[in-house]
Amino acid sequence: MDYTIETQDLTKQYGNLVAVNKLNIKVQHNTIHGFLGPNGAGKSTTIKILIGLLKATSGSATVLGKKVQLDDADSRLRIGYMPELPRFPKHLKGAELLDIYGRMYGMNPVELKEQISKLIELVGLKGRENDLIGKYSKGMQQRIGIAQALLTNPELVILDEPSMGLDPVGMVEVRELIKAISKDGMTVLVSSHLLFEVEQICSHVTIINRGQALVSDTLENVSHKISGPVSIQVEIVNLNQKVISSLKELPFVKEITQKNATLNINLNTREEVREKISQTITSSGGIIVSMSMKGHGLEDIFLELIKSQGAKK
């Protein structure tokens, strides 16, 4: 199977510091792939290698079927890239920047004008396109950054921390925008440290820490693959011994602890069992006030993986 992005033992070293350590990732066509990791995990370094700004110390990377090399201009014709906290020349106006960048892609002026107008509207900069970028807020620079990455409707869009610097409304808009462009057939690689963002928009995820991929799969499979405790907290009215006994008889219940009217039920499965627990409590005379689950979200998986990598070291 061909992948949009594929790395093999990709390594980047700065002296003794290993920023990317034998990284293997595969990004499928037409997916939104989250690239997740704490600060300093090696996300931006990996992206800079993929885009040709840095040279790998060893290993290789293939993007859109072409081996990545430092300064390979032609291969970037099919890639749109927005850097982390993008900084654009302050002396240019927003529309001017898009026009110049568009011409670097060889776009014809008529097509470019239409595309600029469409993108300015899409990223919410209508009315400010003729202002100098030096007068733009951080959020506006982020928006023009997204626009320039989408200029040519590229096959691959790489967005490095696209929500950084945006207000909550802007963050929601960007997420919607990413979902929309994926529907147009683009492959999107989104680097982020915002777990909820990746969880909301990505179909696939690679979790990276200390330069190594801890897991790389569909979001669903990642969830299933990770072992470890999943627990459910239930607040119950009429909590009695019968409820606790009935719950203990369930095969997937590992341990139950009680604190006032709340039971903490540790499970030995990641299957969806909330309905069975609910039925058991109700049939034993308990009334459920609230129920919450810990351990299935990306945040839990992420923390679990980081913790287990730390323990191995």
Partner: peptide, 17 residues
């Protein structure tokens, strides 16, 4: 210094160009 080199060099223009 300004960081504008990153968006510039990630466009389809070689460093020689």
């Amino acid at each position: 210094e300004k960081g504008t080199i990153i968006p510039l060099l990630t466009k389809p223009v070689s460093r020689t160009m």
